[in-house]
Design a protein around this nucleic acid. Structure first.
Lengths: 124, 124
DNA sequence: GTAACTAGTTACCCGGAAGTAACTATGACA
DNA sequence: TGTCATAGTTACTTCCGGGTAACTAGTTAC
């Protein structure tokens, strides 16, 4: 089984615990766009990120999907939505501290996806 | 951006590289069952794992889906399928070395899913 | 001969995820 | 007054991931 940190203490998970944990992760991070949005926000933590910026930055996403996914990320407290008192009014999105906890997951997936591409290049 | 290992050397990814990498990962590891199957195999690397064992071990999965997902995992060289010369003939599945490279991804997702559950427990 | 085991395959169906396009509301600018 | 921008919403539609159930095929045990 996998070693996890449980309140700072290393312990082994049980098999069903792992299956539940993965199911939880997939429920919240799954789907076509959520991880892409989180990456986008992660890479611009120094900027004010507007709705339209994300829409333009993630190729293929529609306003409808972006709106829906951002709402769900906000509900799960991974992202904050802030209305800026500008003219015209703008809205900015940012990772919460909790949202930043997803970064190791993203990094693992990015590394694996990158390795996979290298592997395919070599063997074909 | 994320630091990745590129042929053993640390370097920074570009933003679009990250998006491509994640898309690759999700294409191969995405869906409802693939990661669960990989976990199942990871936790039984010392045993001969038969089709029916997985079917029984992962609650909710149907023979059709299991068959389909295993085929795709085999095509992507994450899993091997071995026909055993027994009576009746049995088939065993195992992680390839390449399949084992997914373990860090699984561990990251398990840890996050576990943390998420703890977080919800605390705040509600 | 028939029931039960292995390891699947096939046909059919459904719901929800996602796409498209049009629309709203507010304000700025010219 | 009309056009463009931001930040979405709504209605309609399509697609396919996944579920169910029945079926194949080889072997063994009763």
């Amino acid at each position: 089984m996998t070693q996890i940190k449980d309140q700072g203490i290393l312990r082994e998970t049980s098999c069903s615990e792992e299956l539940f944990a993965i199911r939880d992760s997939l429920e919240i991070l799954g789907g076509k766009w959520k991880l892409l949005i989180l990456i986008y926000l992660k890479n611009r933590q120094d900027q004010l990120v507007h709705f339209k910026m994300i829409e333009r930055g993630i190729q293929g996403i529609s306003a409808k999907m972006l709106s829906k996914e951002l709402k769900e990320l906000e509900i799960n407290e991974l992202v904050t939505r802030t209305i800026q008192d500008t003219r015209p009014i703008t809205v900015t999105y940012a990772l919460t501290d909790y949202g930043k906890s997803v970064i190791p997951v993203i990094e693992a997936l990015v590394q694996w996806g990158f390795d996979h591409r290298m592997m395919i290049k070599k063997t074909r």
